[in-house]
Structures are given as C-alpha cells and as structure tokens.
Amino acid sequence: MPEKNLDFGKFGARGIKGSHAVARKLDELAGGIATPVTVKRGWLARLHYLTKSGRSRQAAKEAGLTVTDRTLKAWLEGKRSPSKANLARIDAAYRAVRRQNVARHLLKRLNRDGRGTRVEIHPLDQSQVPRPLQRVVEYRTMNVRRWDRIVGSWAAGDYQGLDAAWDDTIIDLGSQWGQYEYVTNVGFAA
C-alpha cells in the first residue's frame, strides 16, 4: 500500500511521510547547538565541535566542509567570517557529524536491551477533506523493538533507506499499515 498515494493531498489531506517525521524526531533527540549558524556564537560553536579532534575534522571534510587549514584558523580566531555558502556547509557538516556521534547512544536507548520503545503515530490531517471522501484513520501506538536500520539510515543521511526501514516497521500495525504512510507526527522518547 505505501507509495500508492501518488496524488497525496489531492482532496485536501495534509501530512508528511512517516519516515520524515521519524527523522525529525531523531534530530530533536540528538540535540545540539541551539544558537543559529548565522550568529557568530553559533558558527564558532559548530566549528569548535568540528575541529576538536582529528577524527571530527576528517568527518567534517567527508561531510562537505573543505576549506584550508589557514581559513579555518582565521575563522576560529575571529579574523574572518565565513560566507553564506560556507555557513551552510558548516551547518550541514555539523549536523552530519553530530548524527554519527550520537547514533550509537540513541540506538542503545531506543532498543532498550530488546524491550524497544513505544511509538505514537498521529494520523494525517483530514480536516480540509470533504466528508464523503474522508477515511477512518485513527491515532495508533506500537512498540518498535529493532531500531538498527532506522537509526543507521538516519545517521548516514540515507532517506530512501530510512523510508524503507520505516515501512518495514509499520507493517506491524496490521492490514491498515498503508494508511500511515503520511502522518501529522510520530512521537517517541529515548
């Protein structure tokens, strides 16, 4: 049933892909620097995070932050400021490295030694859909015991893999699992 919603929203339904809601929640759980990258304090904090070790510097380069050591030193000393394009690269590299660093910890917390984590799935918003065309879709909960593929795909930035992993997970909802391809929110705590 997933991917059958080729014209999602045609009659006024609103929502996002379930896997995107999961990625958004994992980003929220990963935490990080709250100050925006456009503020000096924000980009300096991200640069310090990306340059605190050789391993994190290498991960930042792999994530797309490819500037010379001289430029990086000038930024860290406050002699120069990054351009808008470089600010975007700094933020993207920070998010990628942060995901890699917290993935193992999140995975352990979500799996909870095989007990799993309770997930709340809030259905799509049908308030704008004409009454005769509305489907009966309700709030659902389920316990997800295996987060390995979901967290692994999220940490790698592989959204197609995350989508496939999430679809394989929601099959446990039974015959109605395809109705939860699009949702308003997916909630869980770790």
Rank of each mutant, 00 (worst) to 15 (best):
L87T: 09
S81C: 05
V39T: 10
D167W: 04
L47F: 02
Q58E: 15
F188R: 00
W147N: 00
A63L: 02
P130H: 07
N111V: 04
G12C: 10
L29R: 02
K84E: 12
T35Y: 03
G31L: 07
S83L: 09
A21I: 04
P82E: 04
R145K: 15
T184W: 10
R112Q: 14
T71N: 09
A74D: 14
T141D: 11
R115T: 10
G116C: 00
R41L: 14
L107V: 00
P82A: 04
G15R: 08
L29F: 06
R115W: 03
V129P: 07
G9C: 13
D168F: 04
A96P: 07
V67C: 09
A23F: 09
A189T: 14
Q58A: 15
R95Q: 14
L65S: 09
L87Q: 09
R95E: 13
Q126A: 06
V137I: 15
L162W: 01
D113Y: 09
L44F: 02
R131F: 13
R98H: 08
V102I: 13
H48S: 14
D69H: 08
Q160K: 10
S83D: 11
Q100E: 14
N86M: 10
A164G: 01
V183T: 10
A13H: 00
D168Q: 10
V39H: 13
T141W: 12
L26N: 02
I121M: 02
L124V: 12
M142Q: 11
Q176A: 08
G31T: 06
L76A: 03
K79R: 11
D91K: 05
G64K: 08
W154E: 06
Q58L: 15
L76S: 03
G161H: 06
A13Q: 13
G31P: 09
L72H: 06
K10V: 11
K61M: 14
W75N: 02
F8R: 07
L50T: 02
G78K: 07
A92K: 09
L133F: 15
D172T: 12
Q160D: 11
V151G: 02
E3T: 10
D113P: 01
S83Y: 05
R112W: 05
Q126Y: 12
N101V: 14
S175N: 10
D7T: 13
A92N: 11
K84T: 12
K17P: 12
L106H: 00
V97S: 03
T184G: 00
D7K: 14
I121C: 00
V129H: 10
A60C: 06
K4I: 05
Y94T: 02
